[in-house]
Write a protein that binds this DNA or RNA. Sequence first.
DNA 1: CTCTGAGTTGAAGTGCACTTCAACTCAAGG
DNA 2: CCTTGAGTTGAAGTGCACTTCAACTCAGAG
Lengths: 157, 157
Amino acid sequence: MLDLLTIGELSARSGVAPSALRYYERLGLIRADRTGGNQRRYARAELRRVAFIRISQQVGVSLDEIREALDSLPEARTPSPQDWARLSASWRSRLDDRIRLLTRLRDDLDGCIGCGCLSLQRCTLYNPEDTLAGEGPGARLVLPRPTDAPTPASSLN
Amino acid sequence: MLDLLTIGELSARSGVAPSALRYYERLGLIRADRTGGNQRRYARAELRRVAFIRISQQVGVSLDEIREALDSLPEARTPSPQDWARLSASWRSRLDDRIRLLTRLRDDLDGCIGCGCLSLQRCTLYNPEDTLAGEGPGARLVLPRPTDAPTPASSLN
DNA sequence: CTCTGAGTTGAAGTGCACTTCAACTCAAGG
DNA sequence: CCTTGAGTTGAAGTGCACTTCAACTCAGAG
């Protein structure tokens, strides 16, 4: 059966606010059919896209990159489990990197904070070389490299 | 020797842009003396504060919370290594939570994405119980909301 | 048919963490 | 003294990910 969802239903089932769903649609991350009265109707497959979006955000991926990833899904048919697995696998090294960074941070935190090494940029804790993009408002784990400051490498000379 | 740093020097040594340092000062995260000509001069101890700020950001803490934590440092004397250790310890459970979440995400990613469970809110991957506060639309799925974490101020006194 | 709740739009607003800008002063070398 | 680079300010701008708003229409129950 076709079983199309209203925006309210998709919101309730995904836990994502209707305004966010409309925003995602504007960015091209999800799509909706329209009724005669111009209301959105979502295929059930969109639920999976929304799930993928939210999970990807947790990995630290921007909506723009998520859109690129979603664009690689087949348009003709409903994506298969394999299609989704391929996509999720592409985030995996990113996830690994982030876990590594946070683990190192945790293991070094007590021993390192307060000691002299924190004054220096060469401390691995302070200056992780695998800096990643931001994660969204309020949840930024690793900040983008400041642009008008000298790079750490050069400034230590 | 007192060895005060200019904003440019602090920027170079910390890797943080001068504009960001001024911003931190406005928020009350760091402080500076002034020369007769109104230029900022930073004590060396500020370098450690900046380091703490950047590390804390990587843990996922907002500047506002970092300010609260820094406010708990002794004002009269230069903070000791123990003072810093106490502060860093307060981020630790947060870091643990974050690592746990990402690890689960990584371990479940391949197996779970694409399967039917992603359509459901009860999927642990999609809807980790330790981060979901509300249930209405607009409820953030994962962006770390420190509802359970002890506030730095209370936990440190 | 009426009523109400759910949906529609574009535009503007929010919050965070900064950055950029213009217009200006200061500090240090030659 | 002059020049240049570094520093100063408040105000405004940026980018992301949304949310809120006003004004409106639609869909389904009674």
